[in-house]
């Protein structure tokens, strides 16, 4: 289970563990879907702990990102380490994901969008 923190009625943060791979990708999908079901339009995924990202981990985010955007929200990644950015870059995903430097920048982004 991933730790979560409610920021506002529309924004929640999910904190990843050290790896997001075949062992827990389904849990991430479930956590994201649950947050969407609960009405959070903006979901921040804080990756400060993340050291290993497999294709299953990428898929767990891509599989639900569309729904947040269809609902007028977004999934925002923050505190992403270089090696994780590198993997996202290999898939040409960096330009299509919302990635912020840190949690504070991610929160500001959500607040600005939510007014």
């Amino acid at each position: 289970m991933f730790k979560t923190e409610k920021i506002s009625e529309t924004t929640i943060v999910i904190y990843t563990s050290k790896s997001l791979d075949n062992s827990n990708a389904h849990e991430m999908t479930a956590a994201l879907s649950e947050a969407q079901e609960a009405g959070y339009r903006y979901i921040i995924i804080d990756m400060r702990e993340l050291e290993f990202l497999s294709s299953a981990g990428v898929g767990s985010i891509l599989g639900v990102l569309g729904r947040s955007r269809e609902d007028g929200g977004d999934i925002i990644l923050c505190n992403v380490r270089d090696r994780i950015l590198h993997i996202l870059g290999v898939l040409d995903l960096c330009d299509f994901l919302t990635i912020k430097q840190d949690e504070s920048a991610a929160r500001e982004f959500c607040l600005a969008k939510d007014v």
Partner: peptide, 8 residues
């Protein structure tokens, strides 16, 4: 398309 497979 909410793709989850074939990324690996």
């Amino acid at each position: 398309s909410k793709q989850t497979n074939g990324i690996g």
